[in-house]
Write a protein that binds this DNA or RNA. Structure first.
Lengths: 210, 210
DNA sequence: TACTATAGTAAACACCGTTCACATTGTGAC
DNA sequence: GTCACAATGTGAACGGTGTTTACTATAGTA
């Protein structure tokens, strides 16, 4: 109930609105009660973040049905972009807010399992691509590739969330830029053979601004 | 004095340490005095951010001395990476924290001038590259290119600041990843002719983890 | 029935951003 | 010189925050 109320507050009223007293009010409990379940506010927020990261699995799972590893990789990227742009409050909480690392061993075990951890799942997709020889042979470290692809998409989304309202920059459409970034990175990583599959995006034909 | 004290607090004690009372204590004034100079705390922080963004110019200016536009672009990237990794607290404040846009016309004018705005300067370097026919011909929008390059580097740095201590991910060295990202994006954007200039980084020979 | 762990509470504490009425100081006009 | 006035700084307070402590009521178990 606590986490449910906190999640609603995050989604509806934004980042700063999540206050222990408001959460307590929402579930009609006393603020002090929350301390029976969490050591402090940060631990509560972290529990919420972990739940939400776990929930990402449902969003990514359909990508696994695609035929080729490369298709799965692309589908993963699109899902990630959609998630970030459609739920900016959750995104900010999950990926833009430094939190102390969780030392709960049960949590670590969960994160280590590709069946329950979305990053782990992404990592296996990348490994499938490596095994399928879609990447240049020198690129044989799944962590390296996964972290790079993740960072690229994160950069577009996070910059948009943090500075997208800064009017001194003539921002181009964010979704198009995110997809462009994805294809741009893939182009540099794929072998000649698989580069043929690239849509015209990277050539710059598709996403020219007006 | 106020901004100076606030900047010191950010740098030394981190993000949450910046409190009006601590700033007031540091300059031996009463908290209420700050309100004679800033409408509220957010306006104070925004003024600090703007000062710091302005100060970035000094860091980037040496890059303009490089001979070719492409060299300037590369040098810009390296400086940006160094800045982000060496001053994570400032970086977080400047580029990872959503602030209300500033409607001060004097500020806007300053941001519009490439001589005083670092993004504007970056934009002119990108435009120089376009004029030099370094990029694929279809990539002819400086804003599009600049925002993409910025986002790529930002992604590596921001993800590292926010989740770098998350031990469930086997992070690869962040500086190497940032440089890899930079070269990866360039490789996808440059013409065949200029791609020869690419260091071996992108091929994956240099940055293989142990 | 007695004991104990659990779930929840009321009240307080220190700190936060913010406001307001009030001193103090310096400046320019007459 | 002095009067008016704006600028600068202060002390005390207000409501809100995370957090702690002492306390009550309840449920389950020996």
């Amino acid at each position: 109930m606590i986490l449910e109320a906190a999640r609603d507050l995050f989604a509806s009223e934004g980042y700063e609105a999540v206050t222990l007293r408001k959460v307590a009010d929402a579930i009609e409990y006393c603020p002090a009660t929350i301390y029976k379940y969490f050591r402090d506010k940060e631990e509560m927020v972290r529990a919420l973040v972990e739940q939400d990261i776990g929930a990402l699995m449902e969003r990514f799972r359909p990508s696994m049905d695609k035929q080729t590893p490369l298709d799965r990789l692309r589908s993963f990227g699109r899902s990630y972009i959609d998630m970030g742009l459609m739920q900016p409050n959750h995104y900010r909480l999950m990926f833009m807010t430094p939190l102390l690392p969780n030392d709960d061993p049960l949590y670590r075990q969960k994160r280590a399992d590709p069946q329950t951890d979305s990053y782990g799942l992404f990592l296996t997709v990348v490994q499938q691509c490596i095994d399928d020889a879609v990447f240049k042979p020198a690129l044989n470290d799944a962590e390296w590739i996964a972290q790079t692809l993740w960072a690229g998409l994160h950069g577009v989304i996070a910059l948009h969330i943090a500075l997208g309202k800064e009017e001194t920059v003539e921002w181009r459409p964010v979704r198009e830029r995110a997809i462009f970034m994805h294809e741009l990175m893939l182009q540099g990583m794929l072998t000649e053979a698989h580069r043929e599959d690239l849509p015209s995006v990277v050539a710059g034909e598709t996403f020219q601004p007006a």
